[in-house]
């Protein structure tokens, strides 16, 4: 059984020009200990998918099924998801380690706040305990020891001293290591990492990526990793999910994905990477609007293989090779 199972998930955001259909019936699954890369351009819905799983869509409305350990998260209710799942069984690594930490609280205090509510050895707080949050003290010395051990795991030098620092006194790479440590501290089963290396210098990106990868492997945590960088995805992912404008286009084991991409969008995406000849090819056209998007397969206006059917009907998922799923009427030859 998969750890996370997303089935036909629709997400709509209200905008002034009408509802933006950010996710259009997306399905996805993540197994125990699996690392899945969610790849796509900005605005393709990868962050929206992560937010939907976390239950923090804000004004967005989700419809469909998000099953975690067999439990339907959308049915569980936002409040219960926050208290019992979010920050506990499912944690998050943000894209921006600079702004995501509170600038005025010391690192140790921010970890202590997290551990006060999300420590793995504690029961989820009741609603009343949360209401009284300002008047109760839930910090434990043991949490500090756990924090120091975890900071050591993410290779932050001098963990004891780091706890007494403000986030602004840490480097970008250290801050991202810190958010990785905070994602691991509650001993989650699934980590959602939203482009966790985008904000870092290229030289540090690889280090942080390897660290994250090693730690989730070591601890057997599943990882859903969103990125727009196919190179990054190829390095650490077991499986890759390509999304385009709120639809998933192709889902495949990493090796099969790079060896034989079948969706025209994926093929175009791979060709847009710098190759040995140093030729960069772009994909003609631009990303469609999410308010009144094109019908059928949303890639059809830009697709070289498109037919009338593509505009009329969304292709169903078809398994073209073991574990390699495709949603396309006219796939590229293998």
């Amino acid at each position: 059984m998969s750890l996370l199972e997303v089935q036909r998930l629709f997400v709509r955001y209200p905008t002034e020009r009408g509802p933006a259909q950010a996710l259009d019936g997306v399905s996805l699954s993540i197994g125990q200990g699996e690392v899945v890369g969610l790849v796509g351009e900005s605005g393709c819905g990868k962050t929206t998918l992560a937010k939907a799983v976390l239950g923090i869509l804000g004004s967005g409305e989700a419809e469909g099924v998000i099953r975690f350990r067999g439990q339907d998260l959308l049915g569980l209710g936002a409040d219960a998801v926050r208290r019992e799942i979010r920050g506990r069984a499912i944690t998050f690594v943000p894209q921006d380690p600079f702004g995501s930490l509170h600038p005025l609280y010391r690192v140790g205090d921010q970890i202590a706040d997290l551990m006060a509510w999300k420590a793995p050895d504690t029961a989820p707080p009741s609603r009343l305990q949360e209401r009284l949050a300002l008047f109760t003290r839930r910090r434990r010395p043991a949490h500090r020891d756990a924090a120091i051990a975890m900071l050591r795991d993410v290779q932050i030098p001098n963990p004891e001293q780091a706890l007494a620092k403000l986030p602004s006194e840490l480097s970008g790479g250290q801050r991202q290591r810190l958010t990785i440590a905070m994602a691991l501290l509650p001993q989650p089963e699934l980590i959602l990492a939203d482009e966790p290396t985008t904000a870092l210098d290229v030289t540090i990106q690889a280090q942080v990526l390897r660290l994250l990868h090693n730690l989730v492997r070591e601890k057997g945590v599943s990882l859903l990793f969103t990125t727009h960088d196919l190179g990054v995805a190829s390095e650490i992912c077991d499986r890759i999910v390509v999304m385009y404008a709120g639809q998933e286009a192709e889902v495949a084991p990493t090796r099969s994905f790079f060896a034989a991409p079948r969706h025209p969008y994926t093929a175009a995406l791979l060709q847009s990477l710098p190759n040995e000849q140093g030729v960069l090819r772009d994909i003609p056209g631009s990303i469609p609007p999410l308010v009144n998007p094109p019908g059928g397969c949303r890639f059809h206006p830009r697709c070289p293989n498109a037919s009338a059917r593509c505009a009329a009907e969304r292709p169903p998922p078809v398994e073209v090779a073991p574990g390699h799923w495709l949603r396309c009427w006219h796939p590229v030859a293998a």
């Binding site: 920050g87 998050f92 943000p94 930490l101 509510w117 999300k118 949360e130 958010t179």
Partner: peptide, 11 residues
């Protein structure tokens, strides 16, 4: 970020 980590709204 604090919301994504599920901290209580009061905090």
């Amino acid at each position: 970020y604090a919301q994504a980590m599920g901290l209580p709204p009061v905090i």
